[in-house]
Amino acid sequence: MCVNYRPPTPEQFGTLGAFSDLPNDWRWPEETWKDYVAPILRRGAHGRIEARLATYGMVPRRRIPPEIKPFDTMNARAESIGERRSFALPWRRLQLCAIPMAWFYEPCYESGRAVRHGIGMADESLFFVAGLWRDWPEEDGTAATSFTQITINADEHPLMKRMHKPDDEKRSLVILPRDEVEDWLGCSDLEVARSFLRHYPAEKMRDWAAPSAPARRAPAPSANLELF
């Protein structure tokens, strides 16, 4: 499934009201990979929407004990989100987040080999993906935040079924309609939350052959940023 994506630039956040207070000199890599720090939206302790910096992957690599084989938690399958140990408690607690993106990347095998494709909105607008978050206590008394993206089966989606190897199950991120983002973040019922886990219309999306991925940078230290 999706392992990296293009977050908005600081300048682009002007089109997303919740991030309008981000400092213009705050910079991050052009592509977000596992354990990279990226911005998310969530509901804070008092019900306010807040922006946070969070690491991509529900269980950061530095939180995995050395005796445990490393595992990936960038994507949470909707079908098992309530049973998987990495995701079950945040899901039951409705620790929901929305992840802003310009586009994400998937491999397409229509040519007979893997070709990296970018996938975004047909009108090239920014969008939000549904996810979960959790906090991790730090030694200094603060908390670092991590997040994962939620995925659903895409065997019948006209665009997303074209991605990945021919015999692999097709999966898709859950793209939230812009007018449903606040409702998603404010869900107080698990069944209502599940009703958001549906496909975005293919005719409102586009895909294109994308350049090769740039060399990965060392992940930046975790950080928090409250804007409200």
Rank of each mutant, 00 (worst) to 15 (best):
D135G: 01
P100Q: 06
A209N: 07
R194N: 09
R92Q: 08
K204Y: 02
A98D: 07
G82V: 01
W208Q: 03
R194L: 05
E30S: 13
W208Y: 11
T148P: 03
D21V: 05
R43M: 11
A51K: 02
Y105T: 04
G47E: 08
I49Q: 09
W28S: 06
M121E: 04
W208E: 14
W26L: 15
D168W: 05
E67I: 05
K161V: 00
W33C: 07
I64L: 06
E124P: 00
Q149I: 04
M205C: 10
I119V: 15
Y109L: 00
L41G: 06
P65L: 08
H164Y: 03
L159E: 05
T32F: 00
W136P: 06
E139Q: 15
C97M: 07
R162T: 09
S111D: 12
E50T: 13
A114F: 00
P107T: 10
D179V: 08
A78S: 11
I81K: 07
N153Y: 00
K165A: 13
A143P: 00
P211R: 14
A218M: 12
F87G: 09
N4E: 10
R42N: 13
R43K: 15
D167G: 02
D25R: 03
A143T: 08
P29E: 10
E110H: 11
I81P: 02
N4D: 07
F127A: 10
I49K: 09
A209E: 15
H164E: 03
L197W: 12
W133G: 05
R162W: 00
A78W: 02
R217T: 12
I99H: 09
A143E: 11
N24C: 01
V129G: 04
D189I: 04
C187H: 04
D123S: 14
S172D: 06
A223K: 11
R85E: 12
P66Q: 15
R77S: 07
S188K: 15
L126I: 12
C97W: 11
P7G: 13
G118C: 07
A220M: 14
S20K: 14
P100C: 03
M163Q: 12
P211C: 09
A122C: 12
Y5T: 06
